[in-house]
Simulated scan of single mutants.
Amino acid sequence: MNRIGVFGANGRMGRALLEVISQDNNCQLSAFCRTGSDLIGFDLGPTTMGAKGPILLKSEQNINHNEIDVLIDFTLASGLKNHLADAVKNKTAMVIGTTGLTENEMLALEQASKTIPIVFARNFSVGINVLLSLVKTAATTLDENIDIEIFEAHHRNKIDAPSGTALAIGEAIADAKGWQHDKVAKFDRSSDEVAKTQNEIGYSVLRAGDIVGEHTAYFATMGERLELTHKASSRITFAQGAVRAAAWLKNKPPGLYTMQDVLSLHD
Rank of each mutant, 00 (worst) to 15 (best):
K81F: 15
I96R: 01
T102R: 13
A85W: 07
N123I: 08
N82P: 11
V95W: 01
T141P: 12
T141D: 14
S78C: 11
L132A: 04
N104E: 13
A139V: 04
K89T: 14
M94K: 12
I63G: 00
Q61S: 14
H65R: 04
N104G: 09
D143P: 08
A85P: 15
A112Q: 02
V70I: 14
A87V: 12
Q61V: 05
A87C: 13
S113W: 02
V130C: 06
P117A: 03
N123E: 08
Q111F: 09
N104A: 13
S59C: 09
L134D: 11
L80W: 13
K136L: 06
E60Y: 03
V119G: 11
D69H: 09
A77P: 14
T75V: 10
D73G: 05
H83L: 10
L142A: 04
A139T: 04
P117Q: 02
Q61P: 00
Q61F: 05
G127C: 08
Q111R: 11
T140W: 12
L131A: 06
Q111W: 10
A85E: 15
S78H: 15
Q111K: 09
H83I: 12
L76N: 10
M94P: 00
V88D: 10
L71T: 11
H83R: 08
L131M: 05
D143L: 12
G79T: 05
K136Y: 01
V135H: 10
E103D: 02
L84W: 06
V119H: 05
A121F: 13
S59E: 05
T98L: 04
S113V: 00
A112P: 15
T115H: 13
T141E: 13
T137Q: 14
I68R: 08
L132V: 00
L131W: 07
L80Q: 07
L84S: 05
N66A: 08
D73E: 03
F124V: 04
V119W: 00
D86K: 15
G97I: 02
L142T: 04
L80S: 11
Q111H: 11
A108Y: 11
G97W: 03
E67Y: 03
A93K: 07
L71P: 05
N129M: 05
K91S: 12
L80F: 14
V119L: 06
S125F: 10
A77F: 13
G79R: 12
L57T: 04
K136W: 03
L134T: 02
I118A: 08
A121T: 14
H65A: 10
A138M: 10
N104H: 09
E105L: 06
T140Q: 14
Q61T: 09
